[in-house]
Amino acid sequence: MPTHTFKLNGKKISVEAEDNVRLLWVLRDLLGVTGPKYGCALEVCKSCTSHINGKAFNPCSVQVKDIEPTDEVTTIEGLPATVGKDLHPMQEAWLTYDVAQCGYCQPGQIMAAVAKVKQARKEGRDITDADLDELRNICRCGTYSRIREAVKAGAEDMGA
C-alpha cells in the first residue's frame, strides 16, 4: 500500500492508504483525527471543512494521493496552534456568543469562518454580510444568526 507524507497540524506524518481514499477518511478512520465531521462526503455540507496551506477545503473530496509532502493540513484540532494560543480568536468568539447547539457542524463552521475572514483581509477589507451569505456550511440546528455575530466578533479579534 502506498505511503503518504504530509504535514498535519504542525507535525510531519506518514500514513499508509490506497491512493484514492479521500483525505477525510485518512484523517478520521486511519489517523483518529475526528474534528472534521462527515456530513455528506459530497462537498456539499461543509462539515468536514479544514485548511490546506491556510485555505479552506473539504477533505471529503480530495484523494490522499493529491496531497503533496509539502502541504500543510490543519484541522480544528490544530487551529489554536496556528496563532500560538490555547484557542483561536474565532473559537473564543464562538464561546462568547454561545453559538453551538448540537455542535456537529461547528468545527467546519469555524474553519470556514477563519478562511473567509482571511480572504476578505487579503482583499483589503472587512468581512461583510455578503461574504457571510457565501458560506455554504449547513447548520441543521439553525444557529446561523449567532454564527454571523461570532464571525464578525472573531474577525475583529483576529487582527489585521
Binding site: 477518511w25 478520521r28 478512520d29 483518529g32 475526528t34 474534528g35 472534521p36 465531521k37 462527515y38 484541522t75 480544528i76 484540532e77 489554536p80 484557542l87 473559537q91 464562538w94 464561546l95 454561545d98 453551538a100 455542535g103 456537529y104 461547528q106 468545527p107 469555524i110
Partner: peptide, 27 residues
C-alpha cells in the same frame, strides 16, 4: 448560561457516535 459542552465543541473534542473508538468496530 453558555453551554457546558461549548469548549469541547469548538475544539472538535465533542464525540459523536462516529468518533468513538470501539475495538474492532470498523467502518
Amino acid at each position: 448560561r453558555n453551554r457546558v459542552d461549548g469548549h469541547d465543541i469548538v475544539t472538535g473534542r465533542k464525540q459523536f457516535a462516529m468518533d468513538l473508538q470501539v475495538p474492532g468496530a470498523k467502518p
